[in-house]
Design a protein around this nucleic acid. Sequence first.
DNA 1: CTTGACCCTCACGTAACGTGAGCCCTTAGC
DNA 2: GCTAAGGGCTCACGTTACGTGAGGGTCAAG
Lengths: 342, 342
Amino acid sequence: MLLTVGKLARRCGMTVRTLHHYDAIGLLQPASRSGAGYRLYARADIERLHRIQALRQLGLSLTDIGTALSGPQQPLAEVVDRQIAQIDRELSEAANLRERLVHLRTQLTNGQSPDLADWLDTLELMTMYEKYFSPEELKALPLHTDPDVQVEWSALISAVQSAMDRGATTDDADVQILALRWMTMVERGTGNNPEFLMRLHAMNENEPAARAQSGITRALQAFVEAAVVAARLAIFARYLDVHDMERMRANYGKQMYAWPMLIADLRKAMEENTSANDPNVQKMAQRWMELFRAYAGDSPVTHARIREAYAKEVDLRSGSAVDNSLLDYVREALAGLASTTH
Amino acid sequence: MLLTVGKLARRCGMTVRTLHHYDAIGLLQPASRSGAGYRLYARADIERLHRIQALRQLGLSLTDIGTALSGPQQPLAEVVDRQIAQIDRELSEAANLRERLVHLRTQLTNGQSPDLADWLDTLELMTMYEKYFSPEELKALPLHTDPDVQVEWSALISAVQSAMDRGATTDDADVQILALRWMTMVERGTGNNPEFLMRLHAMNENEPAARAQSGITRALQAFVEAAVVAARLAIFARYLDVHDMERMRANYGKQMYAWPMLIADLRKAMEENTSANDPNVQKMAQRWMELFRAYAGDSPVTHARIREAYAKEVDLRSGSAVDNSLLDYVREALAGLASTTH
DNA sequence: CTTGACCCTCACGTAACGTGAGCCCTTAGC
DNA sequence: GCTAAGGGCTCACGTTACGTGAGGGTCAAG
């Protein structure tokens, strides 16, 4: 049942070198080694490899994959759900490109000169094969449909870039104001949809051309993220003691992109009227607590203070798609868990 | 109508840097420059870019793309046809993977333990997403279905590797025998189908895991190709004079992978009973002559000698999928061209 | 014992850009 | 004419995820 590296490589259509590399960077380490030092991969390693491959196909770098896999894990079934959704988008996009190519081909064989704008659109589709938004989703994306949002978004990006250019730091008051405005704009531009946020993020991460167009360079993205964290920590500081703030500084923001995924899944379950006592919902609630505890620690006093902060400060929640009904839903699921535990 | 580099990049979903790079390596150079040195891209550049993008999606390296685009060009309509066929294969593969993932998800949500072999198959599909052969095509591929062919293929690869290991050169008689046997095996393993040859080649070029499995390393591939050329030049030397051989040595084998593409297209037209006087067939015949002249020069005397060599030496044709009916077809198309020219 | 297939670690190299720097060009508005 | 914003130029260092080869040990079958 344990597989050596060559066997695993062959079965997965990968190379031994790749698996060596993943071991070396700590991404996928074999369950054990034989007496002779041979790597021996077990079933749990296959599961982890599945997660890795799924994230790779979403375009994450190996470093980012490592980060994503270092926190509490989504059930594999949910990973597979996302894969299926991605394939559906790709199927749709491939069909779209196919249609365009058939049209182009018809023009070419009829001796017609292809319309240049159309042709360039087709070339764009050929390049940006990765599919981030379906046509329907684009219609529901304010950032794409609302000119006001677009103008404000551009201005905000410019303002952040200016702050960076003049050497401002993420602790500067004006930068923190920009950061909070960023989260508000994210909320507005995505229609407060965490799934869209993740998609936009993936597109910007994966596509250099998208970065060039949006002006959101890697440096700017990192700056804003750090500024958002700093701004929110400044707010938390009004509610927490020094000890708590130390832990927050070390951990808050570490799973920044795990939260939207979980929130999207929970909102979906809630919108489908799935009972809070459903085992899957309870699992998600559990993961919520794990992510929460990762920065909040285990003290009920601290938890209460953080909750107070969330309740009073809208800036702690902006852009997160967390509202009171979702919080109630999570609480109900957690209550169900507590009662089944005792 | 002329586009600056930024405009073209934006319209095509590419980066300025990429276009700079293509210019720098001579792959896509703009039609002109403004007085200030700005790159200005014209319509013909869009067409060339389309070709580049299509080949990139087939997995060719930029160097190989440059080589492919340095010879006589397939009509763009045919390039588009190949793209459409590739998309169809990808659609089919995506649907296949989707089905597998749905099955896996069902198992996971039912609390079942996924079958390991099945799971690994799914992982392989996730990795080898690129689609090289449809299930039907695999059934028609002797290299995949015929154990005898597999055994002989493996033995031949080992024999070549041994020759390389002991420092043999491509001019050694035993190496040339191996080379000719290689072409015979290619013919047998692909069922003499040039489309399959190209697909196998692409798979081996693009997939390190495939190389690891087949044992056909890049070095071995290059060695065999050079040996095939050397073996065939040795045969031609019996028919051609010193001057002709000089030109052959410089040019024969340069468009090694353009020929199978053209031959596949011509065979398809012939099998569909397209008249040799059809303009598209005549265009293909023209390209045949261009590719031929690229190594044969323009002298009718030399042409006759080369044709004599092809007629008498089966080793010059093995693995090429060129038979007498195809040659007649090409000749008929060329004759039609000659009569419409005068 | 021999041989072939497989495994180990080590380490240099690669392709296709990504990114930033420093400076010039173009256009619109004052 | 000047200024500012957006776009262009060339130069050059850096990056990610392995690919490849070297040298040597292990395992299983004959």
